[in-house]
């Protein structure tokens, strides 16, 4: 099983001044699995994923990628380790076109110049492969619908051929049909051996695609449960900590609880 382990986070902490966003988080991700990462607002899910994607540097704890201890000082280093992320705010540039956004930071070149023709052809191929519906790769991102922007952002992350793909609220702004296509896309990506971390408040989506759920609460990881052992009600209980007293032995205490 250990050779399947893509990512292992142990005791990750991160503070912003006096605010302790992460207080010692443990998380594992295996090859080809979809891991749901859930928790209430402010639980630290997005911060944790920014740490894994190199956008935020953690204070303490260890990151292991494919068994190798590593510390990312910028997003490029995480990208080099084949860790891709789609942020909640999508990280797109509204005044650049679809192809330019797909290839931002790695534009194909001919000598010192961007090879726009090749960039647009490759972008069109990526979008066609993923069934992303936009009218043209020359279309400005700012003119796309919320759903189209989301799928372009996911297509961008997938085009890096990542080993790990982090999706932060990918279905939050989507119409029903678009949610379906994103979930199908997630399953297809995982089937290729990619480990996917899915952060979402749409709990029903987790039951469609995830195999395991990690629950965060006030900056700590408090539960790690196979999805088969959960239903929506019990999952809500784990997130809000209303039902945890029923089985205290399975639940690590939060710092707040420990000091109370």
């Amino acid at each position: 099983m250990s050779e399947d382990l893509l990512v292992e986070l142990t005791g990750i902490t991160k503070s912003y001044g006096p605010v302790r966003s992460l207080r010692g988080v443990d998380l594992t991700l295996r090859r080809g699995e979809v891991l749901g990462l859930v928790g209430d607002n402010g639980a630290g899910k997005s911060t944790l994923m920014k740490v894994l994607a190199g956008a935020v540097q953690h204070d303490d704890g260890e990151i292991r990628v494919k068994g190798r201890p590593i510390r990312f000082s910028n997003p490029a280093e995480a990208q080099a380790e084949k860790i891709g992320i789609v942020y909640q705010d999508l990280a797109l540039c509204d005044t650049l076109d679809v192809a330019s956004n797909l290839f931002l930071g790695r534009e194909p070149r001919r000598g010192p110049f961007i090879d726009r023709r090749r960039m647009h052809e490759q972008a069109a191929q990526i979008l066609a492969d993923l069934h992303v519906k936009v009218s043209s790769t020359h279309q400005e991102i700012g003119t796309l619908s919320g759903g189209q922007r989301q799928t372009v952002a996911i297509a961008r992350a997938v085009s890096f051929a990542p080993d790990v793909l982090i999706l932060d609220e990918p279905t939050a702004a989507l119409a029903v049909a678009e949610v379906e296509s994103v979930l199908r896309l997630i399953t297809a990506v995982a089937a290729q051996g990619v480990g996917v971390v899915l952060i979402t408040h749409r709990l029903q989506d987790l039951f469609r695609v995830c195999e395991r759920i990690t629950v965060m609460y006030e900056g700590q990881s408090v539960d790690d449960v196979p999805i088969g052992e959960l239903d929506i009600e019990s999952l809500v209980g784990l997130i809000t900590r209303t039902g945890v007293a029923a089985d205290p032995a399975d639940t690590p205490q939060t710092e707040q609880e420990a000091t109370a």
Partner: peptide, 22 residues
């Protein structure tokens, strides 16, 4: 026609997005 120009436009549009692109 260069990456420099592309990043100049991108930074003016969404600097954080360009930074996250490495």
């Amino acid at each position: 026609h260069t990456r420099f120009g592309q990043y100049v436009i991108g930074i003016g549009s969404a600097e954080e997005s360009v930074r996250r692109a490495g």
